[in-house]
């Protein structure tokens, strides 16, 4: 009986430990909500949809998050342009084409890339890519949405490669054999059989990668120039939601409208990444069911 009691206590402790994840997620939503909520009464939710973000002003401060959202969207779209082809091609190359020796060489590089801190990537962007972009496109500054997008794509590539690679490798050999036996070339087989069969996994990989891109802070803070304006021009400076929080939260007065507005931005960010994550998980789960 003493044994039994011990077992029960241990199990309770383990349940408690496992529950902390649920608890933390709830707390995150709770605290973001709690600190964002006062914004609804003062100055009101409609203010959020203004097209200007002017947090410091002698006349009237305006907290419209539209420019921040467009900033995030633009940078993310640019990142996608680089992330999708390079991520997917990288995964195809590693899983289907590379020799054993090449794999052993390529994989550590991807793992190293996954490990490089974002602030170091941002620093590299500031030092090297910044002037490259400036010179190539003959701009006044290299601190643009394009610079940020390229670096974000680089950061998310390991995520996309490793998940897509899993999906591609798990395509049954029999599919590929059947195609090859029909006289299709290796490339045709990859393009018409392997990739379509692995597509749900690849899509999920891309979505998870995009989630990382939207949520990334330091790189965009350092290299996109941080101009809060609505623009769809990749050569413009933009300001993302993440960068806004990082740059302004440190100087804001506790409990001010600006403070609450930044928490509103945090909620939007949380919901977007949460949504992307959920869809990606759904896709992955359906895929694994087959």
């Amino acid at each position: 009986m003493k044994d039994n009691l011990k077992e029960i206590i241990i199990k309770k402790m383990l349940v408690a430990a496992a529950s902390t994840s649920i608890f933390i997620v709830l707390l995150i939503f709770l605290f973001l909500g709690k600190e964002a909520l006062p914004f609804i009464t003062e100055p009101g939710l409609s203010e959020l949809f203004d097209s200007r973000w002017i947090p410091v002003s002698f006349q009237k401060e305006i907290f419209g998050i539209i420019p921040l959202i467009t900033g995030s969207v633009l940078v993310t779209a640019i990142a996608a342009v680089f992330l999708i082809p390079f991520g997917v091609i990288g995964a195809i190359y590693i899983s289907e084409i590379a020799t054993f020796f090449e794999k052993e060489l390529l994989k550590p590089f991807i793992e190293i890339l996954a490990g490089i801190p974002s602030v170091v990537i941002g620093f590299f962007g500031l030092m090297i890519l910044n002037s490259m972009v400036k010179d190539i496109f003959d701009l006044n500054t290299g601190l643009t949405a394009l610079t940020g997008g390229i670096l974000l794509a680089l950061m998310a590539i390991p995520t996309v490669i490793s998940i897509s690679e899993d999906a591609i490798t798990s395509v049954p050999w029999s599919y590929k054999e059947a195609s090859l036996a029909l006289g299709a070339s290796k490339l045709q087989t990859i393009w018409r059989v392997t990739v379509p069969a692995a597509l749900p996994g690849i899509i999920a990989a891309i979505m998870l990668g995009m989630g990382r891109v939207i949520g990334e802070t330091m790189v965009v803070l350092m290299v996109t120039g941080n101009a809060a304006k609505i623009s769809w021009n990749p050569f413009d400076s933009v300001r993302t939601m993440t960068a806004t929080i990082a740059a302004e939260m440190g100087e804001v007065a506790f409990g001010s409208i600006h403070y609450h507005a930044l928490f509103c931005v945090g909620i939007v960010l949380m919901l977007v990444t949460f949504g992307l994550n959920m869809i990606a998980q759904k896709v992955l789960k359906k895929y694994q069911m087959r």
Binding site: L32, G215, T217, T242, G266
Partner: peptide, 12 residues
């Protein structure tokens, strides 16, 4: 939790 942006962890 794995998908929460790092800056949101900061806010929280």
């Amino acid at each position: 939790l794995a998908g929460v942006p790092s800056i949101v962890f900061g806010l929280f």
